[in-house]
Amino acid sequence: MTAPHPQVPVTVRMFSQRLSATRRGARLARRFTTQQLDAWGIPYGSELSETAELIVAELAANAVLHGRVPGRDIALRLTSSVGTVRVEISDARGECLPVLPSTPPDGDADTGRGLLLVDALATRWGVDTEPGPGKTVWAEIDH
């Protein structure tokens, strides 16, 4: 009989914040992301911090534009574990699921690039529908 393999301790850090479903709430989500990552040892201005900030900016902007329900907040969740940072933005509109465009928008279009950016920057991303009327759009960045 072989001895069981010892388990290696893994540190998982988590942060969660509810924010108003407004442009100000989306800006705060981006700011909280860089501040929290810096507190976890992922410095401001690093490639990982800037990538996470851009992904959160796009997901939060989509949440306040397409997922807003008056009187309901959005939520930011960050998780950091060995080799991966996960960002999540939740909103109250589970019936309004994000769809990756099949073709890029016209060059002069003002919108339509957010999920294309998330798809290009994230290692993987997806959508979870919550029990009830909400959804969570998440993205993971391996480093």
Rank of each mutant, 00 (worst) to 15 (best):
V10H: 15
V10N: 13
V10A: 13
T11R: 15
T11A: 15
T11M: 15
R13I: 04
R13T: 04
R13K: 08
S16W: 03
S16K: 05
R18W: 13
S20I: 04
G25S: 05
A26I: 11
R27Y: 02
L28N: 08
A29W: 06
R30D: 00
R31S: 08
F32G: 07
T33W: 04
T34P: 02
L37Y: 03
A39R: 15
A39P: 03
A39L: 11
A39D: 13
W40R: 03
G41E: 07
P43S: 12
Y44P: 15
Y44C: 13
G45K: 05
S46T: 14
E47G: 09
E47V: 12
S49I: 05
E50Y: 12
E50Q: 15
T51L: 06
E53I: 06
E53D: 08
L54T: 15
L54Y: 08
I55H: 01
I55D: 00
E58I: 03
E58D: 03
A60S: 06
A60T: 01
A61G: 13
A61M: 15
A61P: 12
N62I: 02
N62F: 03
A63M: 05
V64M: 11
L65Q: 11
L65C: 10
H66C: 11
H66E: 09
H66Y: 15
G67Q: 01
G67P: 01
V69L: 11
P70N: 05
G71D: 05
R72P: 06
D73W: 01
I74V: 12
A75W: 04
L76F: 08
L76H: 08
L76E: 09
L76Q: 10
L76R: 01
L78A: 04
L78G: 01
T79W: 11
V82W: 15
V82K: 14
G83V: 14
T84V: 12
T84N: 14
T84S: 14
V85N: 12
V85G: 05
R86K: 06
V87N: 00
E88A: 07
E88S: 11
S90M: 07
S90K: 00
D91W: 09
D91L: 07
A92H: 02
R93S: 06
G94Y: 02
G94D: 02
E95I: 04
C96H: 05
C96N: 06
C96R: 01
P98V: 14
V99M: 04
V99S: 10
V99L: 14
S102Q: 13
P104V: 05
P104H: 10
P104C: 09
D106E: 13
D106K: 13
G107E: 14
G107N: 11
G107A: 14
G107M: 07
G107D: 14
D108K: 10
D108G: 13
A109M: 10
D110F: 08
T111I: 07
T111V: 10
R113A: 08
R113I: 05
R113T: 04
G114Q: 11
G114D: 09
G114M: 02
L115F: 15
L115T: 09
L115S: 03
L116W: 02
L117G: 03
V118Y: 09
D119K: 07
A120T: 14
A120E: 15
A122R: 04
R124V: 12
R124M: 10
G126D: 10
V127N: 08
D128M: 10
T129S: 04
T129K: 07
T129G: 02
E130A: 00
P131V: 02
P131R: 06
P131D: 06
P133M: 01
G134I: 09
I141D: 01
D142P: 12
D142Q: 14
